[in-house]
């Protein structure tokens, strides 16, 4: 659907959304609904709440697209930040805290589309980077990001001083950023050989 827009970058689509282009919103949804929903579901652990978080995030995309500035952030970062914020809000408000947020959701065979393949590639890249992080840094990042714990809750849970947790999250993210940069992949490069076939 909205196929005429498939060649546009995410950022170009956001620019169209800023001009109230519904097809552009549909195309963004088609590109990001899987990863957005997967993220929200991992945090809130309830399909209906996860869908609410995604719906809310895309409404925010629609409303505030004009404020998005492509030179300063990737559209994907912006959208996933919106999804995460909503999912965390929901889980803090509506659910007792999950005891085991580190478990992976069950693997599902996705449909064999280019989007699916792209997500798998990025997943492998971030998993590889996480594997190379010091255990304690990885633990802090995962509990905060997927578990929705605040830094104070993390300090309690891990029995560490708050200052230690803050430093661990800071170093963890700085290290993760460097590790991801090493394995950087550009989508356009990746698509190049496929587009000629």
């Amino acid at each position: 659907m909205a196929r005429g827009l498939a060649h546009l970058s995410d950022e170009a689509l956001v620019a169209l959304v800023a001009r109230a282009d519904e097809d552009a919103l549909a195309e963004l949804y088609d590109r990001f609904n899987r990863v957005a929903y997967g993220l929200a579901l991992r945090i809130v652990r309830d399909p209906s709440l996860a869908e609410d978080a995604v719906q809310d995030a895309f409404l925010a995309v629609w409303r505030s697209a004009a404020r998005f500035v492509a030179e300063r952030a990737k559209a994907s970062t912006w959208i996933l930040t919106l999804v995460h914020r909503r999912a965390v809000d929901l889980v803090r408000r509506e659910q007792p805290r999950r005891a085991e947020p580190l478990e992976s959701a069950p693997q599902q065979a996705g449909e064999d589309t280019e989007e699916e393949a792209w997500r798998r590639l990025r997943r492998a890249r971030v998993q590889e980077a996480l594997k190379r992080l010091p255990d304690k840094q990885r633990e802090a990042l995962e509990l905060a990001y997927y578990g929705g714990f605040t830094q104070s809750e993390l300090a309690d849970r891990l029995g560490e001083p708050l200052g230690t947790i803050k430093s661990r999250m800071f170093s963890g993210l700085a290290n993760l950023r460097d590790l991801l940069a090493e394995g950087d992949i550009e989508r356009e490069q990746w698509k190049e050989p496929r587009s000629t076939s």
Binding site: G38, G110, R125, V126, Q127, Y145
Partner: peptide, 9 residues
């Protein structure tokens, strides 16, 4: 945001 991709659902 890259962490979001480490999720299969």
């Amino acid at each position: 945001a890259e962490l979001a991709y480490d999720v299969e659902a």
